[in-house]
Structure formats: structure tokens, C-alpha cells
Computed example of a mutant assay.
Amino acid sequence: MAVPKRKTSKARRDKRRSANSKLAAPAISKCPQCHEPKLPHRVCKSCGYYKNKEVIDAE
């Protein structure tokens, strides 16, 4: 069985671990009614529309 010759330093270990923990920015689409940025597959917070239908009354 392979055994490490030297102890891996915290900096080297953490550098390797941090390469896999990048967060991706959320996808943002434009509302077809009011052209405000919104999350896809969700009701628009500014106008209340979803799939060209008014779902909630937003004022």
C-alpha cells in the first residue's frame, strides 16, 4: 500500500480542497412582461406574471 513520504501541509491541502468549492452565480432571465431580472421558472416579483399569466397581484 502506498504511504506518503512527507506530511501534506495545510496550505497545499486547503488549496486542493478550495478548487472544488466554487459557487456558481444563479441564472437570471428577463421577465417578458416588465423586463425586470428574475429567476427562471418563478413568478416575477415586480409584476406577478408567470408564463404570460398574472398569478399574483403585485403592486
Results as ranks from 00 to 15, higher is better:
A2L: 11
V3Q: 10
P4L: 12
P4F: 03
K5D: 07
R6M: 14
R6W: 05
R6C: 13
K7P: 06
K7F: 12
K7V: 12
K7Q: 14
K7Y: 13
K7M: 13
T8L: 15
T8Q: 15
S9M: 07
S9V: 08
K10S: 12
K10P: 14
K10D: 11
A11Q: 12
A11R: 14
A11K: 15
R13D: 15
D14I: 08
K15V: 04
K15T: 03
R16T: 13
R16N: 15
R16L: 15
R17P: 05
R17D: 11
R17E: 10
R17T: 08
S18R: 14
S18Q: 12
A19T: 10
N20T: 01
N20P: 00
S21M: 05
S21I: 01
S21V: 01
S21Q: 07
K22W: 02
K22M: 09
K22V: 06
L23G: 01
L23S: 02
L23C: 04
A24R: 03
A24V: 05
A24Q: 03
A25G: 00
P26G: 06
P26L: 00
A27F: 03
A27C: 07
I28R: 06
I28Y: 07
I28A: 09
S29W: 07
K30N: 13
K30A: 14
C31E: 15
P32V: 07
P32H: 14
Q33P: 02
Q33W: 04
Q33G: 04
Q33D: 06
C34M: 08
C34Y: 04
C34E: 08
H35E: 14
E36C: 09
E36Y: 05
E36W: 06
P37W: 11
K38I: 10
L39V: 04
L39K: 13
P40L: 03
P40D: 06
H41Q: 03
H41V: 00
H41Y: 02
H41K: 04
H41M: 03
H41C: 00
R42Y: 07
V43R: 00
V43S: 03
V43W: 00
V43E: 05
C44S: 08
K45I: 00
K45F: 04
K45D: 00
K45L: 03
K45R: 00
K45A: 01
C47R: 05
C47Q: 01
C47Y: 03
C47T: 04
C47E: 02
G48A: 00
G48L: 05
G48Q: 02
Y49N: 08
Y50C: 03
Y50H: 07
K53P: 06
K53W: 00
K53G: 02
E54I: 01
E54G: 04
E54F: 03
E54V: 06
V55N: 00
V55T: 02
I56W: 07
I56T: 12
I56F: 12
I56V: 14
I56C: 04
D57V: 12
D57N: 13
D57Y: 09
D57T: 11
A58N: 05
A58P: 05
A58G: 01
A58I: 03
E59M: 07
E59T: 07
